[in-house]
């Protein structure tokens, strides 16, 4: 997400999707700032992508990748809380 603006009384932002930039309405996700990642559906930002959750979930996945070949008993293979 880059520049913020306003149109017809609604907050908007420029959002880059790969190489394409579009104006996106922030009415449902006003608590965002340039640099944030948002989930956009038909021109409206509907969620902010949580960086800490993303990083935390990824650590769990990396652990699965590292331990998957080790035959742990089922009770030991539970994921830690993300």
């Amino acid at each position: 997400m880059t520049a913020l603006s306003e149109r017809d009384g609604l907050p908007y932002a420029s959002v880059r999707f790969g190489g394409v930039t579009r104006d996106v309405c922030l009415a449902c996700q006003p608590d965002v700032a340039p640099g944030d990642f948002v989930l956009v559906h038909v021109g409206l930002a509907i969620a902010k992508i949580d960086r800490e959750q993303a990083a935390s979930a990824w650590r769990v996945l990396e652990q699965i990748g590292a331990t998957a070949e080790v035959a742990l008993p089922p009770e030991s293979s539970e994921e830690p809380e993300p």
Partner: peptide, 24 residues
Amino acid sequence: MKYLEEYRDPEVAAGLLREIRRVV
């Protein structure tokens, strides 16, 4: 930060597949 490219990582996908095979 892991958003999109990382969630296509073939090594992590292979690890998940092995874990699915182990659990099922």
